[in-house]
């Protein structure tokens, strides 16, 4: 009896001390960098140049925001529009075409399956060959175009989506397909009217995870869509790094603007992000 009380007391102490220690350590390691971004983005140029981790003596948050948006002929607005088109476009295509593949791949046993499974795995592992890709894109006339970059993101992100969809389709009973076919639904109707709506939860997961990936992508826009006109937010931030080396307040305001969409995503889709990114943890 008394030992039980003791252990529960011990547990409560551990719970509090452990949690407290965790809060302090994570505050220093993880929150300070974000707080630093925020306070530097709120300072005047002179104060920001000191790079001190301190509360701004004079708030210039709005001024900085306006200045960074107006800089270089509103390039940041262009960049946000480009990034939005890129993300929405590529994720939409990715979801539809990968769902079709994942569905047929799971349902239909054919001798092509090993080859397709191999290609999907290769897509996860193999690093894309850069210059030959540019060569192909030039041949197709889509190099340095936004729709070309959209197709690139689709090609590189597809493998992950197919694996997610294939796993999820296996949980949908085949009897459903049969019933729909009995009712006279053709393959297209069956997929888009019956199966696709049932994939909703995994579609949300795929959309969220891939949106984060595409929005944050830096390497592909750098290679396949160079130049200011088509710049995405990541490339713009990278260019600002060189140009704003004397005005840290503006550079950090830009970082803040790029981070906020992700924070909003995380607040709303916490569960889906976690589910998508940790899928495969249990089954290996």
């Amino acid at each position: 009896m008394s030992t039980a009380v003791q252990t529960s007391k011990l547990n409560r102490t551990y719970s509090r001390l452990g949690g407290l220690a965790g809060i302090i350590v994570t505050a220093v390691v993880f929150l300070v960098p974000f707080a630093f971004i925020f306070v530097t983005a709120s300072k005047t140029r002179a104060e920001a140049s000191l790079l001190e981790f301190s509360w701004p003596t004079e708030w210039a948050f709005v001024e900085n925001l306006v200045e960074v948006v107006q800089s270089r002929d509103y390039i940041l607005i262009t960049a946000f529009i480009n990034s939005t088109i890129l993300t929405v476009g590529s994720v939409t295509i990715m979801v539809v075409v990968s769902a079709m593949v994942g569905y047929v791949l799971q349902r239909r046993k054919s001798r092509w399956n090993p080859l397709i499974n191999f290609l999907v795995l290769a897509g996860l592992i193999v690093p894309p060959a850069v210059v030959p890709t540019i060569w192909v894109m030039q041949g197709l006339g889509i190099y340095k175009t936004l729709h070309g970059l959209i197709l690139i993101e689709v090609a590189f992100g597809m493998a992950f989506c197919i694996l997610m969809f294939r796993a999820f389709v296996s949980t949908i009973p085949r009897e459903l397909d049969e019933a729909a076919t009995m009712d006279g639904a053709g393959p297209v109707r069956l997929f888009f009217k019956v199966i696709f709506p049932l994939l909703r939860s995994v579609i949300v997961t795929v959309i969220v995870v891939q949106s984060v990936t595409v929005f944050n992508d830096f390497q592909n826009p750098l290679y396949f869509l160079p130049g200011d006109k088509g710049a995405t937010v990541q490339v713009t931030l990278y260019n600002f790094q060189g140009q704003f080396s004397t005005s840290w307040n503006l550079l950090f305001m830009d970082i803040l603007l790029i981070t906020v969409p992700m924070l909003i995503m995380y607040i709303f889709f916490n569960r889906q992000i976690v589910a998508g990114m940790t899928s495969g943890a249990v089954k290996g």
Partner: peptide, 15 residues
């Protein structure tokens, strides 16, 4: 099988 086609074309050409 043609359900593979759209993905296959993009993946084949660009990867």
């Amino acid at each position: 099988m043609w359900f593979y086609a759209p993905a296959g074309v993009i993946y084949g050409a660009l990867f």
